[in-house]
């Protein structure tokens, strides 16, 4: 019984991280139908910035804030410089561009910070099954995700973002600056992704540190239906807890395999995700 509780709690904090990174994928996917493969690299760059700022100032929190701000700006820049020029070239071109950006940014990170792992601090004490750091991860994601959901649901900006995601042409016809909304969406997504990166990176940072987490985040997003923010958050938590059971009861080496098995199973059986809404969309 204690094992069960421990595994559940342990899965909760990693699940929260998958949920946050998954959410950042969903925000972009629902607005542009592009799976942003560069997301882990954007988060990686902001984590490296946090590393440098923390090293320079001695303050974890200064690095934390710098990383989120820089990550958000990076998302804005990527939308403006790479995604926007490709808007008439089709979604596949944009997806391939994000893949290219992933490789490019990982290489650049290696050139700047070297490919050797550096120690990367936790926010709080990380010892024990459900440490203060785990608690912080869960709370930070809950706050961020709630913020994003409230923003979408209850603010004029959120209504503009949703209208742009559901029907960009109609959004234009009611006076929404659709281009600006896409930029805001990329910034918002990259900001949330940076938070996920900061939580997922410790104890060491190196250019491919977030690759595995990204696979889990993508699985969480697919579980949620790819265009359903709330579904993705639930999907991330369920996946985190599920993988924690796999790790604790069957062996840690089976975790990536289990995640991929879940991904394939969901895509085969319910491509619209476990929580996918009925797609009653008219063309």
């Amino acid at each position: 019984m204690t094992t069960f509780v421990n595994l559940t709690l342990g899965g909760l904090s990693s699940g929260a991280v998958y949920a946050a990174l998954g959410l950042s994928l969903v925000i972009i996917y629902r607005a542009t139908r592009v799976v942003n493969f560069a997301q882990p690299a954007l988060a990686l760059i902001s984590s490296y910035l946090a590393y440098s700022v923390t090293k320079g100032t001695g303050s974890y929190w200064l690095g934390f804030v710098a990383a989120i701000v820089a990550g958000t700006l990076l998302g804005v820049v990527v939308e403006r410089l790479i995604i926007r020029p490709l808007r008439h070239a089709g979604e596949l071109s944009a997806i391939i561009a994000t893949l290219g950006l992933l490789l490019l940014l990982q290489a650049v990170a290696g050139m700047i910070w070297s490919n050797e792992p550096h120690a990367f601090a936790y926010a709080f004490d990380f010892r024990g099954r459900f440490s203060p750091s785990d608690l912080f991860a869960v709370l930070a994601v809950v706050v961020a995700a709630t913020g994003v959901l409230l923003l979408f649901k209850f603010t004029p900006l959120g209504l503009r973002l949703r209208a742009t995601a559901f029907n960009p042409e109609v959004a234009k016809l009611v006076g929404v600056r659709v281009g600006a909304m896409l930029t805001v969406g990329w910034g918002l997504a990259a900001g949330v992704g940076s938070l996920a990166g900061l939580l997922a990176t410790p104890p060491f940072i190196f250019p491919t540190v977030l690759d595995e987490v990204f696979v889990y985040a993508l699985t969480a997003a697919v579980l949620g239906g790819l265009d359903n923010p709330l579904g993705t958050i639930v999907g991330g938590l369920v996946l985190g807890i599920g993988l924690s059971y796999v790790s604790g009861l069957l062996g840690a080496e089976l975790v990536p395999l289990a995640a991929l098995a879940i991904l394939v199973a969901v895509l085969a059986v319910r491509p619209s995700g476990l929580f996918g809404r009925a797609t009653a969309r008219r063309v």
Partner: peptide, 22 residues
């Protein structure tokens, strides 16, 4: 537009609010 261009995922009120957001 033809067919109305109502956004089915949004509520009736959200659709209306959208028309006056600017």
């Amino acid at each position: 537009p033809e067919g109305g261009g109502v956004i089915p995922e949004l509520t009736v009120e959200e659709n209306l609010r959208l028309g006056a957001l600017w």
